[in-house]
């Protein structure tokens, strides 16, 4: 799996690509946490469009980052989960963390300002 962090000071996007399981979650956790702890961005978006496999370890990763961000007053949201990621997210009851189209649009407007 690859993890790429995009974005600036106020919010970052962690783009995850590939298979997210217990083995690969460890590296993703380290990379994302390093950025959260260094920059304390108000919003961390986890982009899951490129996830080709996910099990409950992915839920652990999301909830873990949520805990870290909330520790300094930040938030975590999920963007564009792939079909397999969405299925596990739904089962876990975390749908409210998935950005809606409306939310994404208003965020883009914010950025342009």
């Amino acid at each position: 799996m690859t993890v790429e962090i995009l974005g600036g000071e106020n919010y970052i996007t962690a783009v995850l690509c590939g298979e997210l399981d217990h083995h690969t979650a460890a590296a993703a956790r380290e990379i994302i946490d390093a950025r959260l702890e260094r920059g304390t961005p108000a919003l961390c978006i986890i982009d899951m469009a490129g996830i080709s496999f996910m099990d409950s370890s992915g839920i652990g990763l999301i909830l873990g980052r949520k805990r870290v961000a909330e520790g300094y007053g930040g938030r975590v949201m999920i963007k564009n989960p792939s079909r397999c990621a969405e299925k596990v997210i739904k089962l876990s009851g975390l749908q409210s963390m998935v950005l809606t189209e409306k939310q994404e649009k208003s965020m883009k407007k914010e950025q342009k300002k």
Binding site: A25, D55, S56, S57, I59, G60, L61, L63, G64, L91
Partner: peptide, 14 residues
């Protein structure tokens, strides 16, 4: 503490 969500069996079942 190992960032387990307690959802493994729920996934297997579903």
């Amino acid at each position: 503490e190992g960032e387990r969500a307690g959802l493994g069996f729920a996934v297997m079942e579903a």
